Computed example of a mutant assay.
Amino acid sequence: MDSKGPSLYAPAGPSLDMSRSIEEESLVDGPLISADALHSAIRREFQTIPTPCHAALLSLLHVVFVVLSICLAVLCVLEFGQQEVCMSILGNVRGDSIIVFGKVCLWVLVLFFTACAQHHHSQARSRGYLRFYRQMQGLKHLPLSVHSTGNVLLLVVLAARLSTTVHTCMLLSILGIELLVALPCLIHYTVQVMRFNRARAAPDVSQEEHSHTYSVTNLPTETGFREGSSLEEVVEKQADLIEYLKQHNTLLSKRLLNLSAQH
């Protein structure tokens, strides 16, 4: 009986290992999804930022406003002819008051543009484009800062109660300087966003993974702490990265299920 016991139970070990390995292989033998197919599926999720059209329209309105303000100031405020036409069009309203009202309307449009740009850039940030978001953080708020500064200077000129000629010249000077500063900012913003839309680049995390895969030396990424970088900036970058990775993992799970069902 003792000699038969080991021989009876001896084959159970290899057969058990073989059945376990077959079960493990059956879990892995599902439909394989190529990395190119998954990458192309995720790549189609790129969404462009539509604010270049808004910036171009705002730039055009700014130029038109300054040109009309100069014509109105010269013809109706300084009274270089055409007084009857100004009286028939404006009535009892002063020409400089019309310019101030137009300046307020233009500032409101710039405020709406800044809020719209902030909304679209925040969405790009949630999709993982952290570097682009930080690059455009100050630029998209610069036109509003310029126009707000112009409003302050305009209030100072109105409160100074200068003569009509000096008052009008100061008013036109503020509008001209404001145009020379704000217009290049909007043009530069438009060019940067158009380059971003044309590049259709992958999110920052995917770019870092791709660079680490094909790089020879392991260089530190921007998500880690570097000498000379502030701790607050590093913590903010890591918070953005964690938020993006959560959304990215959800997207990957959906794409994997869809591609698995197709195969």
Rank of each mutant, 00 (worst) to 15 (best):
T190Y: 03
S69L: 04
V100R: 01
P31S: 12
A202T: 10
Q83L: 07
S126T: 11
L171I: 14
V63H: 09
L32R: 15
T51S: 13
E178N: 03
S26G: 06
Q238D: 11
P203I: 05
G176Q: 07
L109N: 04
R226H: 12
T48R: 05
P14D: 08
P14M: 05
V166S: 13
H147R: 07
E209A: 06
L57T: 13
R255N: 12
S206T: 09
I70A: 08
H54W: 10
C116S: 09
H147F: 14
D36E: 06
G91V: 08
S163E: 15
H39A: 14
G150Q: 04
I42F: 09
T223H: 13
L32K: 13
P52N: 05
I89F: 00
D204Y: 04
V205W: 04
I89W: 01
P184R: 04
L231V: 08
N92S: 12
D204P: 11
G128R: 01
V93K: 12
Q123G: 09
V152K: 00
S19D: 05
P220N: 15
V93P: 00
Q192R: 04
L16M: 03
S40P: 03
Y9Q: 09
L175C: 05
R255A: 11
I174H: 00
G150M: 10
H39S: 13
T165G: 06
A160D: 12
C53W: 01
R125A: 12
S230R: 06
K246T: 15
G102C: 05
R198M: 15
N249C: 14
S230K: 05
V74M: 01
Y9E: 12
Y129H: 13
V77G: 03
L158C: 08
G91A: 07
L106M: 12
L183Q: 01
A56C: 11
S3T: 14
I70T: 04
A199K: 07
Y133T: 09
S122I: 07
C169N: 07
M170N: 06
H141C: 02
D204H: 09
L109G: 04
Y189W: 03
P50C: 13
F101Q: 05
I89K: 00
V66Q: 10
E25S: 13
F80H: 08
L186I: 06
Q192A: 13
S122A: 14
T114S: 15
Q262F: 02
S126M: 08
M18C: 11
K103N: 12
P143G: 00
Y244H: 14
V216S: 11
V146S: 05
L68A: 14
A159V: 15
P11D: 02
L175W: 02
R44F: 10
S145K: 07
C185S: 07
G224P: 01
H39V: 11
N92M: 10
F225E: 00
F101N: 06
L16Y: 01
L16T: 05
H39N: 12
L153A: 12
V193F: 00
L111R: 02
L139Q: 08
A160E: 06
F113A: 04
G224E: 09
A37M: 14
L162W: 07
I49C: 14
F132V: 11
G91F: 01
G13L: 09
L139N: 04
T48N: 09
